[in-house]
Nucleic acid binder design. Structure first.
Length: 621
DNA sequence: TGTATCACG
DNA sequence: ACGTACGTGATACAT
């Protein structure tokens, strides 16, 4: 998103909010000349070098990433010393000694996992250059330590690419000499210690210090816990499904060959487009950069025109779900734990949401019958345990009501009404009891569209109605929620003036295209600006809840564990004996995480797996 | 490496 | 007249 993170430039796009005092000048003492770098072999000596240090910076040098990595050495820096430890007993001693004191690192979650692998316990983190840079830059790319050191310290660190090389000349971390590894890791630890006061000042200046200390930094440890915990999947069950789906796909492929009169690769959009639009002469819909679009929306409009279309849509679904989940998940089971361990991205989104990768457990299917079958594979595996889930109801629309103060929207939430039904009643001016399912569907699409900045055309496409009908519907919608409209217009206007947006918690997003002369780019930027305050506050509310929940779970010394977060949902694996405790704890903390004018509603469920769950309670507070 | 597609909130 | 809903990550294909 941002070309080679130009932090100074970025910061200039982020003037501080009025209520935060502007520091007259952010100047710092010069970075001390690099001190002599020691390679320490003796465990007792390594530990003694930590005595009396105010801050300890740590950079672990590992083979592999995340949980499964092997730590090859640890770079450590204090105000006095910079050293590197590569001998196992000395690394273990360092990790243990650092267990009971806050330390500074680059990526706190990754370093935490590495230190735990060395036998260190949980710790509180004092600082993370990675998370600070994320909050300062609000970019969507992973902030790199060498860029920060260059920008804020004018120090050139050896980059990972320089150390290991790229392409076929690349070498493994294990093949790096001790002295090179020491220079790499210890200088990084040193840079972390030197960066800390500078980045802390920048964060205070920008008003993101609350977010940093109260949310992101403690969350890093929670995410490390969740990644370590993992989630069990039923591998034999998925293997069975693999065969079944494979057979179904082969059958459909044969049918398609019959109907089309030729054999081709159904997964290749270009081949498919040729068959549909040239050979079978079906009416062309949307176009892409490279040719005819064959996406599901387009194919759906052709369903009645030719029997091949339905077959292709079915094959698409099977192929997607089989390759992405049924085939992939069993291969990602960790042989040691027997579970899958995702990686949560804590600094990879522009809105403050988390992301999940390797595997992505935030997009496990749920909407279709086949999707439900896949979700069923995620199960409570420990004896006597069950899954408990808790999700926020309509959190973004509640936030929209809260931020806009729209009386109609607030009133509907206050009355405990189904928000889409209430919207339909108001827009169609009919009694709420008489709203039919189609009217509710229209209202639901409009409600979601409004928080994404959707316009008339988008709505008409989404609903399959004409532009005229969409215009009339939207006119009624916006006259119903006139205050919401006013609020969204204000966000758009202010964003355009300032070039960035700020959330309730102080989270920021720079959107340079807000000033683009190009209508299309500018419009897209405005939609991002409109959505940001709602999506990002929702992200922060659940993050606050996660931090508080994990603290309470630890303090109460109970067995149940937080496993996953999926934007507005938390998933736990708990002993049956603790279900009542979680059913009280989880909604209390989730609803108490932030005060919204609408109140917050949380629904809890329990069951043997992630698909078959019965409702426990709906808690409003 | 880029594009199209589609899984989720 | 423009083009058309926000935020992600994984897969397969084509280059």
């Amino acid at each position: 998103m941002f070309d080679r993170l130009e932090f100074r430039q970025l910061l200039s796009r982020f003037p501080p909010p009025d209520q935060v005092p502007v520091q007259p000048s952010l100047t710092f003492e010069a970075v001390p000349q690099p001190a002599g770098l020691k390679v320490v072999e003796d465990a007792a000596e390594a530990v003694s070098l930590l005595a009396g240090a105010k801050d300890v910076g740590v950079f672990t040098f590992s083979e592999g990433v995340g949980r499964g990595s092997t730590v090859l050495g640890v770079g450590v820096a204090t105000e006095q010393d910079t050293f590197y430890v590569a001998k196992q007993d000395a690394m273990d001693a360092i990790a243990t000694t650092l267990s009971d004191r806050p330390i500074s690192g680059h990526d706190a979650k990754e370093t935490e996992l590495a230190l735990r692998a060395l036998g260190g316990g949980r710790r509180d983190w004092a600082f993370s250059t990675f998370l600070a840079a994320y909050l300062l830059g609000a970019g969507s790319r992973d902030p790199r330590l060498e860029d920060l050191a260059k920008e804020f310290l004018d120090v050139s660190l050896v980059s990972t690419e320089q150390l290991l090389g790229t392409g076929r000349k690349a070498r493994k971390p294990a093949d790096v000499s001790i002295s090179e590894a020491a220079e790499f890791a210890a200088r990084r630890a040193e840079a972390i210690v030197h960066l800390r006061p500078r980045l802390e000042a920048e964060m205070r200046n920008l008003g993101v210090d609350y977010l940093f200390h109260e949310i992101e930094l403690p969350l890093a440890g929670v995410l490390a816990d969740m990644e370590s915990e993992g989630v069990a999947i039923d591998v034999p069950y998925l293997k069975e499904m693999q065969d079944e789906l494979g057979e179904q796909m082969v059958a459909i492929e044969a049918e398609v060959e019959q109907v089309a009169g030729q054999k081709f690769n159904l997964n290749a959009p270009q081949q498919l487009a040729k068959v549909l639009f040239e050979d079978l002469r079906l009416p062309v819909g949307r176009r892409t950069k490279t040719g005819y679009s064959t996406d599901a929306d387009t194919l759906e409009t052709l369903r009645e025109k030719h029997p091949i279309v339905g077959l292709i849509l079915e094959h698409r679904q099977l192929s997607k779900l089989k390759s992405t989940y049924v085939d992939a998940l069993p291969q990602l089971v960790d042989p040691l734990s027997g579970r899958v361990h995702t990686s949560f991205g804590q600094a990879s989104t522009a809105t403050g949401r988390l992301s999940s990768s390797n595997p992505n457990l935030m997009n496990i299917p749920i909407r279709t019958e086949l999707g439900q079958r896949i979700r069923r594979a995620f199960k409570a595996s420990r004896p006597g345990h069950v899954m408990v889930s808790a999700d926020y109801s309509q959190i973004e629309l509640r936030i929209a009501a809260h931020l806009s103060g729209d009386p109609k929207l607030l009133g509907a939430f206050a009355a405990g009404q189904d928000i889409h039904t209430a919207t339909a009643a108001a827009v169609f001016r009919i009694p709420i009891e008489t709203v039919d399912p189609n009217q509710r569907r229209l209202a639901k699409v409009a409600n979601f569209g409004s928080i994404y900045g959707q316009g008339e055309y988008g709505l008409s496409q989404q609903l399959g109605i004409t532009g005229d009908v969409a215009r009339e519907f939207l006119a009624q919608y916006w006259s119903t929620y006139a205050h919401l409209k006013e609020y969204l217009d204000k966000v758009r206007r202010q964003a355009r003036e300032e070039g960035f947006v700020v959330s309730e918690t102080g989270r920021r997003r720079a959107i340079p295209d807000l000033r683009s002369p190009n209508f299309q780019l500018r419009s897209a930027a405005e939609r991002m600006a409109i959505n940001f305050p709602m999506q990002s506050l929702a992200a922060d509310i659940i993050k606050i809840a996660m931090v508080r929940l994990q603290r309470e779970i630890e303090a109460d010394n109970i067995e149940g564990r937080m496993l996953l977060q999926v934007h507005d949902e938390l998933l736990f694996e708990v002993p049956e004996s603790e279900v009542d405790q979680f059913a009280e704890k989880v909604p209390r903390i989730m609803t108490g995480a932030f005060e919204l004018a609408t109140g917050i509603e949380v629904e809890t469920k329990v069951g043997p797996n992630w698909a078959d769950m019965r409702k426990l309670a709906v808690v409003r507070a």
